[in-house]
Write a protein that binds this DNA or RNA. Structure first.
Lengths: 162, 162
DNA sequence: TAATATATTTAGCCTAACCTAACATTTTAC
DNA sequence: GTAAAATGTTAGGTTAGGCTAAATATATTA
């Protein structure tokens, strides 16, 4: 066990490496392949930084890459990438739906928050959004409408004890 | 403008430096002063790391420190520390009150999330907690009780359209 | 097919954080 | 009041991640 592992013997990746995996996954999904150039563009870094990062990910068996060729996620790499993206999306939804954060800020915040949340918290936040989504009677639950009103006006409507 | 500034000409600190400010502030509040030893203990680093960090913070006018003596926050340093702590606390409350995350995980997550959230999102999250806190009729709003129930059982109670 | 353009890698350097070992200062205990 | 213990600093090394410049490989186009 030479590499950095957490208590569950799972690889502990820096948020940087997580970002690389995420970007590679996005490119793969959207274009069918990921090249160094595209990764560097999306990550806002230069090509040599990508080459370096890729080779680290390769050492951890998270990507495959043959010289001058495409970068591909391994099963393990894809798992991690998808995990991060789920966290990203749940924050995106929470911030835009519940807190009414503007899309640009919500996106930026989600990019950071996705690396900072535990799985336990992710699960419960997901439940929370599900709770709102599955409101059986209206698109937006009454209490959430009340919160919107509270944010806009400071007025505190009656809070029913259901 | 040689130092790293963001678009508002504000200092952009690494989350590491933010953590040092936070810890110094906590020590100052709880013990009346902050020494290198205490900082290193709370930060889980060795003394020389603290000395190095302190001197960087000093260069940015965020702390004062005379050799072998106490470390003190400047006004600016204190402002930043308090800002981070407010973010920490609001996550702590959100995670424990709304999502019912266990205190240990909530604390760990808050320590990370505090560095990842914009001011705008912080403000709105604060509003959200305020909305819950000021529920005029009950300790815990009915909708939140319904969510707890939903988390525990998966049952979806009636959602009133208030 | 040769010349040019683009993409990738390598080499070498920088900064932020951390560390250990060695040295300096301050505090404590006799 | 000095010697031991504790605390703090300096020096020098490591790793992660970024950069530029230069070399190499691939792709395109004349």
């Amino acid at each position: 066990m030479t590499k950095t592992m957490n208590k569950n013997n799972k690889l502990k990746l820096s948020s940087n490496m997580e970002d690389y995996l995420e970007v590679i996954n996005i490119l793969d999904r959207e274009k069918g392949f990921a090249r160094v150039k595209d990764i560097s563009r999306l990550m806002n870094v230069k090509n040599p930084s990508v080459t370096g990062a890729i080779s680290k990910l390769e050492n951890n068996n998270l990507v495959k890459h043959e010289k001058y060729g495409y970068v591909e996620l391994t099963i393990k790499g894809k798992e991690i990438a998808q995990n991060i993206q789920k966290k990203h999306k749940i924050f995106q939804r929470f911030l835009t739906i519940v807190l009414k954060i503007n899309p640009v800020t919500a996106e930026k915040d989600s990019c950071q928050l996705e690396h900072a949340i535990s799985s336990e918290t992710y699960e419960k936040l997901t439940k929370f959004i599900e709770f709102i989504d599955t409101c059986p009677e209206t698109e937006i639950p009454g209490w959430l409408k009340s919160f919107y009103h509270f944010m806009e006006t400071g007025e505190r409507p009656v809070c029913r004890n259901e």
